[in-house]
Design a protein around this nucleic acid. Sequence first.
RNA 1: UCCUCGAUAGCUCAACGGUAGAGCAACCGGCUGUUAACCGGUAGGUUGCAGGUUCGAAUCCUGCUCGGGGAGCCA
Length: 464
Amino acid sequence: MEKVLIRQLVKDMARYADREVEVQGWIRSNRDQKSFGFLAVNDGTHFNTIQVVYEKEVLSDFERVAKLRAGSAVTVRGRLVLTPKAKQPFEIKATEVILEGDSPEDYPIQPKRHTREFLREVAHLRARTNLFNAVFRVRSLLGYAVHTFFQERGFVNVHAPIITANDAEGAGEMFRVTTLDAKNPPLTGGGAVDFGQDFFGRRANLTVSGQLEAEAFALAFRKVYTFGPTFRAENSNTARHAAEFWMIEPEIAFADLWDNMRLAEEMMKYLINYILANAPEEMAFFDEFVEKGVRDKLAKIAGSKFAHITYTGAVELLKESGEKFEYPVEWGKDLQTEHERYLTEKVFDKPVFVTDYPKEIKAFYMRLNDDGKTVAAMDLLVPGVGEIIGGSQREERMEVLVQRMREFHIDPRDLWWYLDLRKYGGVKHAGFGLGFERAIMYITGVSNIRDVIPFPRTVNYCEF
RNA sequence: UCCUCGAUAGCUCAACGGUAGAGCAACCGGCUGUUAACCGGUAGGUUGCAGGUUCGAAUCCUGCUCGGGGAGCCA
């Protein structure tokens, strides 16, 4: 008797035909009749379940098997039979069904449709559903694809620090990391909390971005990327924001904004093609039950050229569109979500890079353009999700960078090491950040970020 | 944080001022190939919490808590 995984059976069913096999998994459903019944068993190795046929005249404990409930863990032994005429390609004629772990009748995952909201409340069990099984397998595959893409192109993976003392970056509200007694912190003479007595001897936070550290390594390895957790303590309550998420941040030296965009486009297409090729069952499921036509959408994008438009061009285009927007379009103001959606969904109907934003609405480290008014920034907008990538060419000129920091009220002494990168062998360089979860959302069609993170952390929510 | 909608059986919903119901799940039974199985039956409720109006509140009003959608911030 050979112990087999459903994935093996799917890949090589002919080899197992009419052989005795043993599978182990969890019952999704049990349909019993007078003298026979059917179990749908999922063993976690494949999206599909395997159908187990059990018969009264074969099993001495038929009545007991007929009562097994959804959620129970079982070992099944029997003969693998090919069933070319049936809905499923093969099934097991059971000779033995052993209950490994019972599941009482209050098991929350019923063989019926559940809302995503309900399943979030049972996040420890939701991976056993079709939807979340598919989502989290795609998440795993996508992470692998990210590493493969960069490693194959000679990028070095940098583990940027998760705890940081860079509080000058301004990418968002930060979570403080401390070992001080919250009730009774040490105070300075002036009555303020004395962080000098904290664990690190100074204020420390969870990272909001590994970019600054990635820049340091890009100026040593030329091509690097980070891929790790990121934390934002923003009070944002949307389907696209979480307090803990993962970000991919490549950084390339001797490169400008156009090199940066070429890399971003190549990466997005690689990731899409990888998932289409390696998660066919999952993508078929998303296509049918989550977002109709998602596979065609992705295939089309992987084969198309991404659009490009400057911020100034986008503002003109939006103004001349005749479209009524809730918020007016005005040069110097950031594009609203409705503007971005109009551009990527109505005007271009595909991913679009928007470049060269006014310097006032972008970060201090973005390279100042020759017009003195805009910076070499780029956002990649995609239909349905909105901004999925944000990046820029970095300011490599010491004087300009220091001036920009002053404009943003950042003390250059706080980022002395970042300035050193310009002082010693600084070169033009560029990079971007891809929200890992937003990429998953875009590829699967799942519209809430809480449903693509195993155990999501959001404002007022840290269960599990 | 703002706008908006909502919270009723385990789940999804109905009842909209007058005895709280259905489908699915569960449980019991039927059915010789089911696959969202089907058919019959049983059980299941402090209507989110706290107040108020009323002869009478799931229903109307106020506050709170939690959730969905949208916005801001961003990835």
